[in-house]
């Protein structure tokens, strides 16, 4: 059970208010018309899926309904920090 700090509501809320929406910082191709099948496949389907530190997108589904990012350890489940869309996480993106 997570207590998640929503950077928009600026409060800790119960996990049930949120929904995990997968890996964060996946940039949509800038020139989709010229993408190869390989590039489309990588963009749509292939994920880092790390055991350890992971930057992920969460949705405050029954709260402010905004998307934001969480840095979390997928082994210990510890939440390192949360930050707004457009911000850069502490430490580099792996």
């Amino acid at each position: 059970m997570f207590l998640i700090y929503c950077p928009y509501c600026e409060e800790e809320r119960a996990e049930e208010e949120f929904h995990a929406s997968g890996e964060a910082h996946i940039a949509r191709p800038l020139d989709p018309d010229s993408c190869s099948d390989k590039e489309w496949g990588d963009y749509l389907f292939f994920r880092k899926n790390p055991r350890g530190i992971h930057h992920e997108l969460w949705h405050h589904t029954v709260g402010c309904r905004k998307f934001f990012n969480i840095t979390r350890d997928t082994q210990s489940y510890e939440i390192k920090n949360t930050y707004k869309i457009g911000e850069v996480p502490k430490g580099e993106i792996k």
């Binding site: 059970m1 997570f2 996990e15 049930e16 929904h19 995990a20 929406s21 899926n49 055991r51 992971h54 992920e56 979390r72 997928t74 082994q75 210990s76 489940y77």
Partner: peptide
């Protein structure tokens, strides 16, 4: 499944 990624062989109460 729990909606988040995890390797901890445990999930959440909800």
């Amino acid at each position: 499944i729990d909606s988040y990624l995890g390797y901890g062989q445990r999930g959440s109460y909800p």
